[in-house]
Amino acid sequence: MTVLTLQNLTYSYNDGASQRYILNDVSFNFEAGKFYAIKGPSGSGKTTMLSLMGALDKPRGGAVLFKGKSIDNVGYEKYRRNHVGIVFQSYNLIPWMTAIENLMVAMSVTDNDIPKDQKNVATNLLNYLGIDQSKIERRVKSLSGGEQQRVAIARALATNVDLILADEPTGNLDEETSEEIIQIFKRLAHEHGKCVVVVTHADEVALEADEGLVLSKGVLRRREMPVQAAVPPVESQPIAQVQPPTLEQDDPNDVSVEHTDVPIKF
């Protein structure tokens, strides 16, 4: 199912008298249950594109459709609070709040149905993402980068949305932590059916994705799958054939795939 559609998207900045085009007639469909990685050189417009997908900015031309409906019609604020979760490179948590409070802010804002025992849901979600009980009630500024990013992802999920956007989510994290975060995204797509779009310039991330995209010179293209994937780089390749790597069971922060009873889906 197509969750998000980019339709002839155009974006430009005023560069003195002339216009500098960052996105030039970009069209693409993002499907549910898939983990997308968008690569591109620095300054190619990845963040700009993600901000349009997250309704943090308006395109100059074209449209962003959520499940077939233009987000102009949905309403930007409404779209943000009910349909999309955004994860940032710099986490962007409210520093004087605890981890659980950060989640509950999002839960209070959304119009989506949230179970009454918000605290419980938030706790389970944080546990699922590897934040243990002792850290849940701590101010987030006392958490490590990796932990903060897990909280940020939990917040994106807390409103029970189908679309997760992430801009360089591992940009500030070490390799090991990055890998763990990537695995989380993968699981969200494959086990929970989310449409996950991650912008990155790291090859490791791109290699894990179901679909690799490259943004360059204002144009978004599919990328040939790397050889390691051992699958032909065909556009119509079914998602089911892409096998996610198994999680390392000895990582205490990671919850095993078997924990499907965790109520991530409300």
């Binding site: 604020e77 943000r80 962007n92 948590l93 409210i94 999002a106 804002v109 959304t110 409103t159």
Partner: peptide, 14 residues
């Protein structure tokens, strides 16, 4: 401004 930006990004009404 980060906190306020977060409220905006979360879709809180202005």
């Amino acid at each position: 401004r980060y906190e306020l930006g977060i409220y905006f990004a979360l879709g809180e009404r202005k």
